[in-house]
């Protein structure tokens, strides 16, 4: 396990660049969004790197067109812009059209949750998982480290559906030790086994969940890197070992995101899983200025906030340890 944070977009672009050297079916489209690692890709593959300009709608349409001609497309932009500026293009030309056509379009959205902290609410991305979840035929991934991201990238080369990859804007330390322990088909991994309470998290929040769980003890952690699809039966079976579930997400809660996904899943198992609560951003945009840690503190989703939630839950319930 490496201690050094890895900027997922940089590592991914480097990997795509390597693959482009052996696979001439790959094209990389950007909506005028860069990365230090993009320079080499642009230089090495000028014909297959296309900057469409600040035009996310066209980015999606161009991507759909390329994929109709059999190309593997990576379309790259800031997460809130690629998902919400171009939502109807995604709906019509990827989600709807892929009902009858193979469309290997991989949307890479950078800036999950509050990772663009001081850039303010237009650059925060708190709605993407919610709005993208509603679209049939599109697979959603929200990795928490580079090992998972690389595994998803390998999958993207062989799976011909549209996909949305939600990447953090900041560097993240690796959580997983090797890609062999990750199953894309399962879409999740119980990365820490607990006794009574299970934290279900995605992306950056999996790091928070691990820190909180390890410092308290008896708390399990499930990393949901595959928001759609995932192995529902296996996840339910895994969650059923616990009597309490807490979801953690860097996104709006009570609107159809990770919390709703889990709540819908455990609906019929509430006799076993008696407690459920969700932590994330309530129904209000974050205008406060400060770094991510500060924004998490004031929204009660930092490590201390999560620990307090766990402690309070245990205090209030006789059934928990």
């Amino acid at each position: 396990m490496t201690e050094k944070p890895i900027v997922l977009r940089d590592a991914l672009i480097e990997q795509i660049c390597i693959e482009m050297g052996v696979n001439d079916k790959i094209v990389f489209l950007s909506a005028d969004f860069g990365s230090p690692r993009l320079d080499k890709l642009r230089e090495d593959f000028p014909e297959r790197f296309i900057n469409v300009g600040i035009a996310e709608q066209n980015l999606i349409n161009i991507a759909a067109g390329f994929s109709l001609e059999g190309f593997i497309v990576y379309a790259y932009a800031i997460a809130p812009f690629i998902t919400m500026r171009a939502y109807e293009q995604i709906r019509n030309n990827l989600s709807l059209l892929s009902h009858t056509r193979d469309l290997n379009v991989n949307l890479i959205g950078v800036g999950a949750g509050l990772s663009y902290d001081v850039s303010g609410p237009t650059h925060h991305c708190l709605e993407d998982l919610i709005v993208m979840r509603t679209l049939p035929n599109i697979k959603l991934f929200s990795p928490s480290d580079w090992i998972t991201t690389k595994k998803i990238f390998e999958y993207s080369l062989v799976n011909n559906s549209p996909k949305y990859l939600r990447l953090d804007g900041k560097g993240l330390k690796n959580i997983y030790e090797s890609p062999e322990t990750i199953s894309i088909e399962d879409g999740f991994k119980e990365i820490l086994t607990g006794i009574d309470i299970c934290l279900v998290s995605t992306g950056y929040m999996t790091h928070t969940a691990l820190d909180a769980a390890k410092s308290i003890g008896g708390v399990g952690v499930i990393d949901m890197f595959g928001i759609k699809p995932f192995n529902e039966r296996l996840l339910l079976e895994t969650l059923s070992k616990y009597s309490a579930v807490i979801t953690l997400e860097e996104g709006f809660i009570n609107k159809g995101g990770l919390d709703s996904l889990i709540l819908n899943l455990i609906e019929g198992k509430r006799d076993k899983i008696s407690y459920f609560t969700n932590r994330g951003i309530k129904d209000e945009y974050v205008f406060d200025i400060g770094n991510r840690q500060y924004l998490h503190e004031i929204n009660n989703i930092d490590v201390e906030g999560v620990k307090n939630t766990i402690i309070k839950l245990r205090t209030c319930s006789d059934n928990l340890i």
Binding site: N58, N61, I62
Partner: peptide, 20 residues
């Protein structure tokens, strides 16, 4: 070839096909 109904989509998709 494609889905339509909502307007203003065809030319962008056509550009992608054309470049492809």
């Amino acid at each position: 070839e494609t889905i339509n109904g909502s307007l203003g989509h065809g030319l962008g998709v056509g550009c992608g096909v054309s470049l492809g």
